[in-house]
Design a protein around this nucleic acid. Sequence first.
DNA 1: GTAAACAGTATCTATCGGATACTGTTTACG
DNA 2: CGTAAACAGTATCCGATAGATACTGTTTAC
Lengths: 238, 238
Amino acid sequence: MGDETGRVVELLWGAPSRPTRGPRPSLSLAAIADATVRIADADGLGAVSMQRVADAFGVTKMALYRYVSSKAQLIAVAIEAAVGEPPVLSGTGWRARIEQWAGLLRENWLRHPWLPQATVGDRVMGPREVAWIECPVAVLAEAGLTGREQMDAVLLLCAHARNTLTASVSGTQPWTPGAGSGSLREQLARRAADYPAVLAATRSGRSEDNGWRFGLELILNGLEARIGRAGDRRQAGA
Amino acid sequence: MGDETGRVVELLWGAPSRPTRGPRPSLSLAAIADATVRIADADGLGAVSMQRVADAFGVTKMALYRYVSSKAQLIAVAIEAAVGEPPVLSGTGWRARIEQWAGLLRENWLRHPWLPQATVGDRVMGPREVAWIECPVAVLAEAGLTGREQMDAVLLLCAHARNTLTASVSGTQPWTPGAGSGSLREQLARRAADYPAVLAATRSGRSEDNGWRFGLELILNGLEARIGRAGDRRQAGA
DNA sequence: GTAAACAGTATCTATCGGATACTGTTTACG
DNA sequence: CGTAAACAGTATCCGATAGATACTGTTTAC
């Protein structure tokens, strides 16, 4: 890990090196990242391969290894390109700002549907990605949460956004009507005695936004309760 | 999708077929699922390949295609085997039961660290997996939430569990000290002016459980507020 | 002007999921 | 009771994948 991680960090965070000798590079890291984003946007993360990115420039796939040293690095720079610049929050009060931030995050992830699944697990985050985290953390810090609470809350919001976006669209889940014969819903109905609650709860399908607003308000209400208490504590202590 | 989905549904939900003619199968779907679980437990989901599962039985990889028709099906039956039997909740009151359920889910996912990542996106759920969902949905139904709220809340809890388990363990994230030279945290420190809030919030590392309890209580508090209101509405309506 | 440094290519390997055609075994049925 | 159908597992092939290595040609610093 040490070596590979170090190189990714350097690539994402280091200054762009400008060596002099030798032929001019015909590509650039930024262009490669953009091409990767376009492919992922169009055909999903699974469609991204070295070959296909190279084809977009009319070069061999091995030429890409002059710019990135592995596919993981390719994805890393593509993520950093896709997240874009962090927003400037304009609302008044922490709740309005967090809500605005969450909405913008979701919008951006809707534009790049592969981003939610690409940003799970252990990764090296890039400057813009951390900047996206920076702004809600600052808001919650001002609101009086502890450092850990700030991070936990922001990551919870990210988790919720991710989950409501990666959730099912096609008819493979209990809450989708399914295509008749072999659908999951039909199987549930045939064992109605075993799954009464799920059947009842999913009778009217799932909410249009996959529970995004529901969960968001739940989390914000929870934060409000905690921030209220934190404020009380601060008042009592002062 | 229709065909492939149908076959997965049949495999997970259908009665085990017992044809008579021809040689006896030397393997069984259950044994294959168990072997797959063992491999994923030991070396991660990425280490699961047809070849490796076949090696566990000393057969060719193509032999496996007599039992599953694709790798996706293999993973599906492995998931169904790993989730195990759903729990019986013993607490009193909806909150204690949900909390108990969430804890058991998390424990099970800790035993099979690949499960959180294997259960994202569009899939056909198996009988036991739906049974795991059934029990908290029933609890929340009794507590007075609407059908959609029940599903949204349970999936929010799943999302939270998933996210706190798949989150970083090694030193690649802002809140981990990192291995000196090329660590992300050092890069953040070098640009301290850009990330003051994140740096301050992560100074003392991340919580040991990755924010599991924090988020759980946030969600439960949010549910409590909503259930209280739902109760009021029911009283008012009655 | 020449040699070092570098960009991109050509070729090779290992591994993956999967299709196809086969060999051998078991058992139902004539 | 034997024979043919049905089935299990194998052998072999395919295309795609990420990546290593060795090369050819170009550019520029000295």
